[in-house]
Amino acid sequence: MAVTRRNILKNATARTQYIAGVKALKQEDSGQTTGNFGIPGPSIMISTYDLFVIWHQRTMMTMTPPNNPSGRNAAHRGPVFHPWHRVMLMILESNLQRVLNDATLGLPYWDWAADGNNTPAKQKKSALWKKTCMGGSGDPVTIGPFAFKASDPASWRVRVEADVAGNLFSANRGLRRTLGAGTPSLPKKVHVDHALDLTPYDKVDWDASETEAFRNRAEGWNPEDPLAQHWMHNRVHVWIGGDMSPGTSPNDPVFFLNHCNVDRIWESWLSQNGRTYVPGNSAGAFLKGHRIDDPIASPLGGTMTPRQVLDVSATYVYDALP
């Protein structure tokens, strides 16, 4: 039976479960150490949660094809952006269900455009950043369920991070956020509406250029405001800042709330556009990894392709679509 994904600011149960679930996954030993992954620094336990950090970083550093000048990788800056993150969310959701022993648990989303309709000052005071939800800003974050407490080894800690070259190394520090420092405001609802008006899903040059297509706008490379540097999904990462900036951005549990909302927006687009996807498999090898029947970079292997995730109604639904 399909689970329902709900707004974290409107459903206390979804909020409580998500926080409890990610904290449990952060404490759960995956059976691996940083040494097993060749990550320098003191060899420490890799939690199940930290596997998602490594997965995102490694996928982001996998160019498709190798050395392409557009920087298109196996999860970003190309058509597979939405399908890859959909698979990642489903795998996290499955782990949350397992660790909390609740098969009805649905991943919550953060409708950041609702906050984006407020003034920049109010956006930073959203209920999301209260100590009863995701906690606030800072280096480290000091309030809420992900606050750093030096004396408490069970408090939320970043255990794997990357250097400027993209090399992972082990760490032991608190979570960082710089709300509103990188860009003053979140996307607004009208920006979501305008993204949903765009068809087709993607088009030439299939990258992070200024082409008018849904994927490019939703990922954030095609701002409708020519003066804006960051848009939609990218803008949310930049607005939160801190650990949401590098490729290890799943270190912040807000990562999944952002991407669940991005997935919700894609689901809305799919429902309005016949669940279509491009490019097809007749596209050239330079788009390998992004075509409709290409395997998505995931533990599901060759069985999981963009085509397989265009209709996920048997697995989950959203309580409301934009």
Partner: peptide, 26 residues
């Protein structure tokens, strides 16, 4: 996607095995 397939692939062991086999990025 059928849930048992997803749950199996989502296990920490499967995810870790997948990650350990990835080629080092160039």
């Amino acid at each position: 996607m059928k849930s048992p397939h997803l749950a199996d692939a989502a296990s920490p062991k499967k995810l870790a095995t997948y990650l350990l086999k990835l080629p080092k990025p160039s």
